[in-house]
Design a protein around this nucleic acid. Structure first.
Lengths: 242, 242
DNA sequence: CGCTAGGTTGAGGTACGTCAAGCTAAGTGG
DNA sequence: CCACTTAGCTTGACGTACCTCAACCTAGCG
């Protein structure tokens, strides 16, 4: 199995077993690796997409631009996330996908994905499940934006990212690399940069997290989870036949 | 074609043609109609669902409850919307679905939906597309909650609901029935009831909408769309082969 | 050594929340 | 037909979470 496929397999196998043929269907597919530098656009609004991609390295995010010039990231994506599988259904993209850090993306042509959907229905169901989980993540985020204040929102985000990064093996001991600026973080949280900074400082003052350079350490998991009202059911972490 | 299926067919046929066999597959399915009174729970958090349903009459919404006791609706659903098709993929529901008004829901067992997915792949793709559109709606809403203020959010919501209701034939002449209280509206907008009321009054003062009893009239579509930065691409209104 | 991107801090403004009161219309019982 | 109740809407006063602007600080980096 080539290295770059490991995170995708990990995400899928966290939810259900893959048969040897299913693994092979993925491994033998003609993935195309492309590099993107931080802040560059991976997929653009309105684009007619003919292929879909997952993250083989780095962080990416969906973003909506407002007339005022402000932007809002609608979801953050990590290693192993299929960021535009729904492009197969929605012919034109309704948003941009941008690289938050330097990224490697693995592309697969839609024709091949359609083959997978007919030849390997169970594998396809698992892939679709990741899209459904994305939806669940978005719902949680709507609740956070609508009803929670800054420190709680940030706490929720940091908890969720830890769990998702742990699945693909790049987080352990309650710690992970998150090489994004507070400016980007603000556009995820729906806050100003200044207020984002203050929210972060509150988490530090309460000794819930430390965040130096690009390394996030969760010092008090249960405290952070309580503040962010984080409870991971919506991430579908149960391993079961699907 | 029985009456209660019309809105579902309208939603699907707005995006692509259905063949006679595809229509028949839906019409001949053993739908089970159930009534729900306003404020009652249609599907509960954590429930293991074995069937999925669409709205044959009324309004429903997904809702997340917070520890503080507050709630946030994460999406509003109208006539013809399949509210829990993803329950087929996520074994357990990550949220509640509640009736906003008195509702009639049409249920279909998952086994039958699975049959449709294998026997009628194009129909299944269209059904999946509605789930993907739901995701796009949620992304727009995240942007609204994160970056727009109250009157703009409300304007966006009213524009979107008009378009969605027009598709299923229950809105015309920029007017529709929306029998919900400002309390419910506040939990959609992520605002307090008082501020929701003031946002609504601003729209009235600007002569963008009138809202008396349960009837919403959009008096100035382009003004409202401008205020809400509403642009309907994300609703996938293009009729094309999918 | 100076430049720059990013982080931090303070001061003052605004959009929103909370509380509390009053209003209106529909429903209920006598 | 009229009290009385009640749910929902509206208004005002006041507090707070967050925003904006502007300055300063820090750590790379050429």
């Amino acid at each position: 199995v080539p290295d770059h496929l490991e995170p995708l397999l990990a995400t899928l196998e966290r939810r259900d077993d893959l048969s040897a043929t299913e693994r092979d269907a993925l491994v033998s597919s003609p993935w195309l690796l492309r590099r993107f530098s931080a802040e560059s656009e991976i997929i653009s609004f309105g684009q007619l997409v003919e292929e879909s991609c997952f993250i083989a390295e780095g962080f990416a995010a969906r973003t909506v631009h407002l007339m005022s010039g402000a932007r809002q990231f609608t979801s953050v994506h990590v290693l192993g996330d299929f960021v535009d599988l729904h492009g197969l259904l929605l012919r034109r993209m309704d948003h941009d996908v941008v690289a938050l850090t330097d990224c490697r993306m693995a592309f697969l042509h839609h024709s091949r994905l359609k083959d997978i959907s007919t030849d390997h229905p169970h594998l396809w169901r698992l892939l679709s499940t990741t899209v459904a989980i994305d939806g669940a993540i978005q719902r949680q985020w709507i609740a956070a934006l609508g009803r929670r204040q800054a420190p709680s929102r940030l706490a929720h985000l940091l908890c969720e990212l830890f769990v998702r990064l742990e699945i693909v093996g790049v987080a352990r001991d309650y710690s992970y690399q998150l090489p994004i600026t507070q400016h980007v973080l603000a556009d995820v949280l729906g806050l100003s940069v200044v207020h984002t900074n203050r929210a972060l400082q509150e988490l530090r003052a309460r000794e819930l997290v430390s965040w130096k350079g690009s390394r996030v350490c969760i010092l008090d998991w249960s405290g952070l989870a309580r503040l962010g009202e984080f409870s991971p059911e919506y991430l579908n972490l149960v391993h079961e036949p699907r």
